[in-house]
Design a protein around this nucleic acid. Structure first.
Ligand SMILES: [Zn+2]
Ligand SMILES: [Zn+2]
Ligand SMILES: [Zn+2]
Ligand SMILES: [Zn+2]
Lengths: 131, 131
DNA sequence: GCTTGACCTTGTAGTTGCTACAAGGTGCAT
DNA sequence: ATGCACCTTGTAGCAACTACAAGGTCAAGC
């Protein structure tokens, strides 16, 4: 299968797939006589794995680790678990941070009682030091 | 005041302040005889505004708009309100996205019932197409 | 047979918002 | 006079792509 098909099958842009190959995230594909990349089902599975991990918020570095781990069938699960747990912790922290941001923005929105910027509380409170 | 003082006063790195000047986010400072930047209280207020907006999650482009608006005291508040509302909407959307991510990661974590990667459900479900 | 168009190739540069040097100049205390 | 903290400019790096540019390949249609 050519790069365009693989791209469609996985919802990835062809340029991203080439980027993954350059970065060593995906193994290089075979080449046809005309030098087109020729992908196998293994590539499809690998790219699916990568994309799913990325969509779950794992960094490229974490994806590399996950890929390496998924290749060592006899290792205990612990390291995989730990990676997932860390990612979960990061996501939870981001939610906390964004929630307090949301609260601040809501307060800000409610604070405007004027009609012109000269007296706008929003603009005023932006000019105040944070916290 | 020199760049280092302004940096300390606003919790910004000096390099970031110079970056803002290059980007036109902050007006250029006066220069001393020895070519050091020399900041006024107006600069302090402007940088405070910028940093606060950035901490609230506004993009540089939005900060530019906010700065421009805050200079036109006679305009109605509407455009400021709209910018804040849009930022709020974006933050809320991010929270929604991260929450479903969090749920997926929790499911993933609970799914592991094996001890070796060869049978690990986590690794299996990463290899499955998303959704 | 020749053109059109979709696809593919490599290589390079842009995105966002900084951050980190490198190489040198300035200011003040000891 | 020497050390050290601070300042200057300019350039390159980060993450994870994305967007060209300039050209090669292949099947279809006339
Ligand atoms: Zn941990
Ligand atoms: Zn207002
Ligand atoms: Zn809106
Ligand atoms: Zn497991």
């Amino acid at each position: 299968m050519r790069i365009g098909e693989l791209a469609k099958a996985t919802g990835t842009k062809a340029e991203t797939i080439r980027y993954y190959e350059r970065e060593g995230i995906l193994p290089a594909a075979d080449r046809t006589d005309s030098n087109y990349r020729d992908y196998s089902d293994n590539h499809l599975a690998a790219l699916t794995f990568v994309r799913r991990a990325r969509q779950l918020g794992f960094s490229m570095a974490q994806v590399r680790e996950l890929l390496a781990l998924s290749d060592s069938a006899d290792k205990p699960c612990q390291e995989v678990d730990e990676l997932v747990r860390e990612q979960l912790e990061e996501v939870e922290q981001k939610i906390v941070d964004l929630s307090s941001l949301r609260n601040e923005l809501r307060l800000l929105l409610r604070s405007c009682e004027a009609n012109r910027i000269g007296e706008c509380r929003i603009v005023e409170s932006l000019a105040l030091p944070f916290k």
